[in-house]
C-alpha cells in the first residue's frame, strides 16, 4: 500500500485569516477509490479545490507521490499528473466535444491516438464529437468532463460530486466508471452527497465536518457502522451546533 496523495494539516480558505479547512489530514492510497462525505458546508468541495490549486492554501502540505504541490497554479496540475472534475460548469458549452478534448490534449504527445482511445472508452461521445458540448445531456456532459480529466493520463483524479443532478441509473454508471479507473492504476478521490452509492464503490472513506476530520475508515466498515449509519445514511444530518 502506497499513498498517491497525502494531505497533511491543511488549512485553506478564500479569505485570509478565515480558514474553511482546519488541520485536515487525508491519505488516498494508490489505485484506490477514496470518498469524502460529510454534511453541507463541511468543506468537502473546498478540500479538493484546494488540492487542485483553486483555493489558496495557507498552511500544511499536499503531497502528490511525495512532491509538495500546495500553492502550485491550477493550470500546472495536469502536467504533474493530477486532474480535477468540477461539479458544475465542467465542460466548455461553446466548444464542440472534439474541441473540448483537443484543448486538454494540447500538451499531450500523440494526441490523435489518445483522442481515439477516449472515443473508444466513451462511445456516446464519439457519436457527438462534432456537436457543441452545450447540446449534450446531463449524463453525457459528465462523461465528457471525466473524459477531459482522463485525457492527459493522470495518476490522480479528483471529482466533485460527479453523480449530482443525474438520474439514479446514470449516477450509478458514473460511479462505476470512477471505480473502473482504479483498475487502470488511477487513484480516485471523490466528494459525494450520494453517500450510500458512493460507499458501495469506495475503498476508503473520510468524514469531514466543519472543516475538520471527523472519522475515517474502510468504506465497508463505515457503511456497516450503526452510528455513522444513523447520522449519514438514515437521512438525518449532523446538526451544525
Amino acid at each position: 500500500m502506497t499513498a498517491a496523495l497525502t494531505i497533511e494539516a491543511l488549512e485553506a480558505g478564500y479569505v485570509r485569516d478565515l480558514p474553511i479547512l482546519r488541520q485536515v489530514d487525508l491519505v488516498a492510497e494508490r489505485a484506490k477509490l477514496t470518498v469524502i462525505i460529510g454534511p453541507n458546508g463541511a468543506g468537502k468541495s473546498t478540500l479538493i479545490k484546494a488540492v487542485a490549486g483553486l483555493v489558496p492554501v495557507t498552511s500544511g502540505r499536499v503531497l502528490l507521490d511525495g512532491q509538495d504541490i500546495a500553492g502550485i497554479r491550477p493550470d500546472q496540475m495536469g502536467a504533474l499528473g493530477l486532474s480535477y472534475v468540477p461539479q458544475t460548469d465542467n465542460i466548455f458549452r461553446h466548444l464542440s466535444v472534439r474541441e473540448n478534448l483537443a484543448l486538454v490534449l494540447r500538451r499531450v504527445p500523440e494526441k490523435q491516438a489518445r483522442m481515439a482511445e477516449l472515443f473508444v472508452l466513451f462511445p456516446a461521445l464519439a457519436q457527438k464529437r462534432a456537436d457543441r458540448a452545450g447540446s449534450l445531456s446531463g449524463g453525457q456532459r459528465q462523461m465528457l468532463a471525466i473524459a477531459m480529466a482522463l485525457a492527459p493520463r493522470p495518476r490522480v483524479v479528483l471529482m466533485d460530486e460527479p453523480s449530482a443532478g443525474l438520474s439514479p441509473k446514470i449516477a450509478a454508471e458514473v460511479l462505476a466508471l470512477a471505480r473502473s479507473l482504479t483498475r487502470q492504476d488511477v487513484t480516485v478521490l471523490l466528494v459525494e452527497q450520494n453517500v450510500k452509492q458512493a460507499l458501495g464503490v469506495a475503498d476508503h472513506c473520510y468524514i469531514l465536518a466543519e472543516g475538520r476530520n471527523q472519522l475515517d475508515g474502510p468504506a465497508a466498515a463505515i457503511l456497516a457502522d450503526p452510528v455513522v449509519g444513523e447520522i449519514y445514511l438514515g437521512g438525518k444530518r449532523m446538526s451544525a451546533a
Binding site: L54, M77, A79, P86, D89, I91, R106, P152
Partner: peptide
C-alpha cells in the same frame, strides 16, 4: 476557472 483546470 475551468480553462485553468484544463491546463490553460
Amino acid at each position: 476557472n475551468l480553462a485553468q483546470v484544463a491546463g490553460v
